[in-house]
Every structure is written in structure tokens, then in C-alpha cells.
């Protein structure tokens, strides 16, 4: 009995550590990759070696800032909103397996759990925008909600395709059912997932809800200090969650050479690959206009996801 409790606590601590470290790794990668893609060097001084401690220094700076709550704000909701995004992605990270036995919690329907809780993060954004008592924040939150509604559907449809192909809703089960054949067979689904995940994370080119040049960071306009940092952490944790999820769903997770003892590393590397693509898109592409953004979802992604679903169903029936 006590043995079980120790294991649960240990797994929870490991998930928390991963949740605090992996987003910083992605963030630092974004600093450096984006800089070099723009012909710059990026941070060079903090920590001594190529500015590795830049985000730690940023964290210290955020912690020192004054925590301001506007008079017009709905104060309790305003204070609560950043926590929602963080907790949502923490709960999602807990069920993503890095290896057949390396996970925070083994949920039988892990895929449904992960998709369900990541949606909650957007509720945090919506709460932030509504409670700020600020027009920019409200417009940003409305855009964010509209974006979630349009992109959640193709995201779930592409996930359904992976689940049907594997005949399982468990993330471990899906990764075990993976074969190299999936790289071609599930490619449209993976593209739909990647685009829809980028949109749900409100990353470029789908960053209209937080567009700084249009709505001044949208729902985050009124936030300062640690609460603002929590929103940023949630964004990068979201990249980590979505990248790892796609790595497990589409690239077979820990499948690879020496996966007997290096499986977790393969999952992390594959996830890192998708995180790099998300960063790369941010550097290369301009922002979509609000109506173009809805167009991509309803006229592009949803039909493509439905097509993928049909292909998967036919494939499963034929090979069964």
C-alpha cells in the first residue's frame, strides 16, 4: 500500500519537474533558432555559455514585478485565470507516455483525457479576457474562443483517426500499434493535428487572439509579473504537450533503435522535432486574418480530417 503511494508521489514529482523544465528548453530553443533564422545570435550572456540561463533570468525578472489587478477587473476570476492554463497542460502532460512504463499516470482512455484537458486551457484565456475589463482583452478572448471552436473539431477528428487505426484509445496502446506504414497512411491526419494544435496554442500564423500589433497581447493585456509569466509558461507547456502527443500518435513514440532502454529519449526527440516545426512556422509565416483563419479550419482542415477518417476506416476494414 505505502509502496503505491510512494510511486504515485514520485511520478507526480517527475511530471512536475518535466513540466517546469521542458517548456524552458523549448523556449530557449525558440530564442536561439528564431535569432539565427533572422541572422541574429539571440541571448549570449546569461549563464555564460550562449545565454542558456536567459529564461531563468526572465523568470527572476517576472517574479520581481508588481502584481497589478485593474480596478475594473473581476478580481477573483482575473487572479484565477492564469492557473487554469497551467493546470490544464500539467494534467495533459501527466498522461503522455515517454516509454511503455514512463508516464505520470496510465489512463486507459489517455487520448480523450489529453484532448479534453487541453481544451480547458482556452477557458483560462477566455476568463482572463472577460475579467480584465479591457476591450482589447475582450476582443482577444472572443477571437480565442472562436478559434477553439473551429480548430477543436479537426483536432479531435485527426485524433479519432489515430485511435481507429490503432484500435485503442490508450496512448501506450496507440504507440504499440504503430507501424512505419503509418507515416504515409496517417500523414493527412498528422498535418491536420499539427495545424490545429498550432491554432489551439494561438501560435503564429494563428495568433490573431494575442496579436500584439492588433489587440496588444489580447487577453494578457492587463497581466504583469508572475501571472503573465504563467500564461507564457502555459503557452510553451502547450507546445510540449502537443508535440509529445503528436510524436506518440504519429511517430510511434518510443519506437526506434535501442528502444529497450532509450525509448524515452526517442519520444522526447520526436516531440522536439515537432516543437522545432512549430517554432519554424512562427519565424517564417505572417499572421492569418480572422476570417482567413476560420476559412482554413472549416474549408481546409475539417474536410481533410474527414477524408483521413474515411481512409483510416477503409484501411482498418481491409486489413482486419
Amino acid at each position: 500500500m505505502s509502496h503505491d503511494v510512494v510511486e504515485v508521489v514520485l511520478r507526480a514529482v517527475c511530471v512536475l519537474a518535466a513540466f517546469l523544465v521542458l517548456p524552458l528548453v523549448v523556449g530557449q530553443t525558440e530564442h536561439k533558432v528564431m535569432a539565427h533564422m533572422q541572422g541574429r545570435l539571440g541571448p549570449m550572456y546569461p549563464g555564460g555559455f550562449h545565454g542558456w540561463a536567459q529564461l531563468v533570468a526572465d523568470g527572476v525578472k517576472f517574479a520581481q514585478k508588481e502584481d497589478i489587478v485593474p480596478i475594473a477587473a473581476d478580481k477573483r476570476v482575473f487572479r484565477l485565470a492564469p492557473a487554469l492554463g497551467i493546470v490544464a497542460y500539467l494534467l495533459a502532460l501527466a498522461v503522455i507516455p515517454l516509454d511503455a512504463h514512463v508516464f505520470g499516470a496510465n489512463v486507459d482512455d489517455g487520448l480523450i483525457w489529453a484532448i479534453a484537458v487541453t481544451g480547458i486551457g482556452t477557458v483560462g484565456t477566455l476568463m482572463a479576457g472577460w475579467s480584465s475589463g479591457n476591450k482589447y482583452a475582450l476582443i482577444g478572448a472572443m477571437r480565442s474562443a472562436a478559434q477553439l471552436l473551429s480548430y477543436e473539431l479537426p483536432l479531435i477528428l485527426s485524433c479519432a483517426s489515430f485511435a481507429i487505426a490503432a484500435g485503442s484509445l490508450s496512448l501506450v496502446g496507440i504507440a504499440h500499434a504503430w507501424t512505419p506504414w503509418w507515416l504515409l497512411w496517417q500523414l493527412p491526419g498528422a498535418i491536420v493535428f499539427l495545424v490545429a494544435a498550432t491554432a489551439e496554442l494561438q501560435r503564429v500564423p494563428f495568433d490573431a487572439p494575442v496579436a500584439d500589433s492588433e489587440v496588444v497581447m489580447g487577453p494578457y493585456t492587463e497581466y504583469t509579473g508572475l501571472r503573465f509569466a504563467f500564461f507564457l509558461l502555459a503557452e510553451y507547456a502547450g507546445i510540449v504537450v502537443m508535440s509529445l502527443l503528436l510524436a506518440v500518435l504519429y511517430l510511434g513514440g518510443w519506437t526506434g533503435p535501442f528502444d529497450g532502454y532509450l525509448g524515452w529519449l526517442w519520444t522526447l526527440l520526436k516531440g522536439f522535432l515537432f516543437a522545432l516545426i512549430i517554432i519554424w512556422m512562427r519565424v517564417s509565416w505572417p499572421r492569418l486574418r480572422e476570417d482567413q483563419l476560420q476559412r482554413v479550419a472549416w474549408l481546409g482542415l475539417v474536410p481533410l480530417a474527414l477524408l483521413q477518417l474515411a481512409i483510416t476506416a477503409v484501411g482498418v476494414v481491409l486489413t482486419a
Partner: peptide, 15 residues
């Protein structure tokens, strides 16, 4: 666009 940024990343920074 992606090719341009990738090319820039592989060349030397101007900083």
C-alpha cells in the same frame, strides 16, 4: 518562406 529562414539559419549571423 520556410526555405528562406532555413537558409538564413545555416549562414553566419550578422551580430
Amino acid at each position: 518562406g520556410m526555405a528562406t529562414t532555413a537558409r538564413t539559419m545555416t549562414s553566419h549571423a550578422h551580430t
